[in-house]
């Protein structure tokens, strides 16, 4: 059996855990260098968890609870999950969570004095189809303050978690919205050194996804690590 390892991330395209402008990184980032596996990636890194569809029901609509419409601007987010060689990842799980239209999470630790919405919870799970496509309906999340620095506000964003085809492809990220003036001020957005890599976290407005008389559409593609060019031969 031959399994091809996932290739390393391109320099500068991933954020640094030591990002002083994001204060919470200060005491949480390792100071020792990361240790490379002497064998390269092994079964532990190359294989994925198994999420049987029957045990993980999908829910592609965050915009209502018990049939009641949430407050805010209804949007559709759609796109594909691909690897760095453009190969789609079919049937992969995407978890989604976000604040409501007022910028408040339905979470006990969120004390921002903005209203909760009884018709918005803000968590969902979808799977990609055969061609790696996904889509869901939600409410555009609001900006909210945080205590990182004076007058700090997070830009509008949606959180995502993806699993991919091997645990080394695991990705947790945030998607932003075009034209948001808070992006330039956000240390989390700026923790990724490469400007092109950062800007790929911004969704694109898409009139083709927009549904008349219903919801604005945004396109956002996820790219997971590609496979290396050199096959990893079984030493057995």
């Amino acid at each position: 059996m031959t399994t091809t390892a996932f290739r390393p991330y391109a320099p500068g395209t991933q954020p640094l855990n030591d990002t002083p402008s994001y204060r919470s990184t200060g005491k949480r980032h390792p100071v020792q260098p990361l240790v490379a596996l002497p064998t390269g990636q092994t079964a532990t890194e190359l294989l994925p968890p198994h999420f049987a569809a029957a045990r993980y029901p999908a829910s592609a609509d965050l915009s209502r609870v018990n049939g009641q419409e949430a407050q805010g601007e209804r949007i559709i987010v759609a796109g594909r999950v691909l690897d760095e060689d453009g190969r789609p990842l079919p049937h992969t799980m995407i978890e989604i969570w976000q604040a409501n239209a007022a910028g408040r999470y339905d979470h006990p630790l969120d004390t921002h004095p903005a209203p909760l919405d009884p018709h918005f919870h803000g968590a969902a799970r979808v799977f990609t189809d055969e061609e790696g496509r996904y889509s869901f309906t939600t409410i555009k999340p609001g900006a909210y303050p945080w205590r990182n620095h004076a007058n700090a506000w997070r830009p509008n964003h949606i959180h995502y978690s993806l699993f991919g085809a091997g645990f080394a492809q695991r990705l947790v990220t945030q998607m932003y919205f075009p034209g948001d003036p808070l992006l330039e001020l956000d240390p989390i957005f700026h923790a990724t050194p490469d400007a092109a890599a950062r800007n790929r976290l911004i969704a694109a407005f898409d009139i083709g996804i927009t549904q008349p008389e219903w919801a604005l559409g945004y396109r956002f593609d996820f790219v997971l690590r590609g496979r290396g060019a050199t096959p990893f031969e079984d030493a057995a």
Binding site: Q14, Y22, R55, E95, H107, L109, H159, L171, V172, L201
Partner: peptide, 29 residues
């Protein structure tokens, strides 16, 4: 193709995803 999507912090509110059953991997028998 572009490079892999940048990671971003999971943040303090990720518990919206939490399902306490997931701590027991033996739950499916």
């Amino acid at each position: 193709m572009p490079h892999a999507t940048a990671s971003q912090t999971i943040g303090p509110y990720w518990h919206l995803l939490e399902d306490k059953d997931w701590t027991d991997l033996t739950r499916f028998g």
